[in-house]
Structures are given as structure tokens and as C-alpha cells.
Design a protein around this nucleic acid. Structure first.
Length: 259
DNA sequence: ATGGCTATATGTTATAGA
């Protein structure tokens, strides 16, 4: 089972690039972030025609997550538990039923800038809620995959120019510590586990020729529960997508599970 | 980067991203 995460930065803007990548990469499941669309505005037919089931959790203008799956999806849950007043569409869960059932979480973690400030407070409180949810999921003893745009640069080697990010919400010590607290519940970070080299990136800014200079950061991650990590057979980053026409600023990151 | 680009809707300017 090939499971990918991809922050598309707007479904309307990626209406050609996303299907093109789907055709060649042929993932079984895709967790999408920043669809920037309400549920009714998501062009689900485009993906249904290609054999995908579609579940969305959108909102107007920004944020928004979705799941595309060639396999059946069950028990869909929208929204991160722990704060009924939180109206931002950043979390979706579903169980994908292959040879083995896998619980999938698609997430778009808050950016948090400027820090300090209310947006940074929201980021850290959101991460505390995510840790609580991650702990509950571990107790299920199912294979669990939590994948998406974490908006966290885990280590200096995950940025081409870490000094630029020192005061940024993506790299502040509190952000990285909150990420480690989730990881240390017992998750495996799939790319780090299989490709420990420095300089592996998933995002290149649109500005100042970041792509051409390979001035990137690694912020899109797939975290696997022990039961999911036992099934891991491969990973990849489809970096070439960033060099095409009308690209997102993120690229797809994927895992292969024997499930 | 005091944000040099991109995307969306709030739309010929503002907000958000990272």
C-alpha cells in the first residue's frame, strides 16, 4: 500500500499538476493539505474518475485537508479533538481497508508565525492536542500513519540555511520539542528512519530562487506507530514535481507498507 | 527579507503562507 502526503497549496491552482502526478506515482492513498476549498467546491469527480474515494474537510479560503483512496475508507473523522471552539480545518482521519486495516491521519499543523504571539500559542496548543490524540491512537494497537505538513523543521540538518530559521515558528526550540514529544510516544519518522542523510527537503519557497538554489526545508513528515513501522518497506520524495509548471511549494512524500 | 512569490476571496487590495 503506497501512502503519500502532499501539500498542494490550493486545489484550483493544482487542477492539472495533481492529476498528472497521480497518474505517474499511482499512490493508493493520498493525504492532501491546503486544499483551500470548501467541501462543495472540491472537484471530487476528477479523482473519482481515476478510481479514488474522496473525503474532504475543507473551509473557505485557506487550510483544508482531504483523503484520496483507491481502497475503501471507513470511520471518517473530521477535526482534531480537544477544542470544540477550533474551527480551522486541519485534521482528518479514516481507516483504509486493505489486506491490513490502517488508521490514517492527514494533518496540516499551524504555521505559528509570528512568534511569539497568539498564532504561536495556537500552534503549541494544537500540538498538545495532537499528542493526546496520538496517544489514544497508539492504545488502539492498530497500524497508524500520521502524515502531513507538520510545519516543523526537526533538526538543523533539515534546512539548507538553518540560521535563517532560528527565530521562526517552524524551528523554535518549543516547536521542535513539541514535535519530539509526539515522536517519543513511540512513533517512527519514516523518512529519517530510511534516509538519515542531511539536506533532504520537501519544501522550497517560491521567493528568491529558493528552488534553483536548493534552499529548502523538510517539514512534511510521516509518523508511523510501531505496528505500522513493522510494515514499512520503502519511502520516497517526489522532488521533481517542484521543477514543473505551476508547482506547489511542497512536493509529495510517500511510504510503502506491506498492508 | 522591512518578505523579493503564490493563492484565495475578503477581489484592483487584504490576508496567509513559511
Amino acid at each position: 500500500m503506497k501512502i503519500a502526503t502532499f501539500n498542494i497549496n490550493g486545489i484550483k491552482a493544482r487542477i492539472e499538476a495533481l492529476p498528472a502526478w497521480l497518474e505517474e506515482a499511482a499512490p493508493d492513498v493520498v493525504l492532501l493539505q491546503e486544499i483551500k476549498s470548501v467541501d462543495e467546491g472540491f472537484p471530487r469527480e476528477i479523482f473519482e474518475e481515476r478510481g479514488y474515494n474522496v473525503e474532504t474537510h475543507g473551509q473557505k479560503g485557506f487550510n483544508g485537508v482531504a483523503i484520496l483512496s483507491k481502497l475503501p475508507l471507513e470511520d471518517v473523522m473530521r477535526g482534531l479533538p480537544g477544542d470544540d471552539a477550533d474551527e480551522q480545518a486541519r485534521w482528518i482521519e479514516a481507516t483504509v481497508v486493505g489486506a491490513t486495516a490502517v488508521r490514517l491521519c492527514g494533518l496540516y499543523l499551524p504555521n505559528g508565525n509570528p512568534a511569539p504571539g497568539p498564532k504561536y500559542d495556537y500552534k503549541l496548543s494544537w500540538m498538545a492536542r495532537m499528542k493526546a490524540r496520538a496517544g489514544a491512537l497508539l492504545e488502539s494497537e492498530m497500524p497508524v500513519v500520521m502524515a502531513g505538513d507538520y510545519n516543523v523543521i526537526p533538526q538543523a540538518e533539515d534546512a539548507a540555511r538553518p540560521e535563517v530559521w532560528r527565530e521562526d515558528a517552524l524551528f523554535l526550540p518549543d516547536s521542535r520539542a513539541a514535535f519530539r514529544r509526539i515522536l517519543n510516544l513511540g512513533f517512527t519518522e519514516a523518512i529519517r528512519a530510511t534516509d538519515p542523510r542531511p539536506g533532504v527537503y520537501t519544501f522550497w519557497d517560491y521567493q528568491a530562487g529558493a528552488w534553483e538554489k536548493n534552499n529548502g526545508i523538510r517539514i512534511d513528515h510521516l509518523l508511523l506507530s510501531p505496528q505500522a513501522a513493522d510494515l514499512l518497506t520503502g519511502t520516497g520524495i517526489d522532488k521533481g514535481v517542484r521543477g514543473r509548471d505551476k508547482p506547489s511549494d511542497h512536493v509529495p512524500v510517500w511510504i510503502e507498507l506491506a498492508a
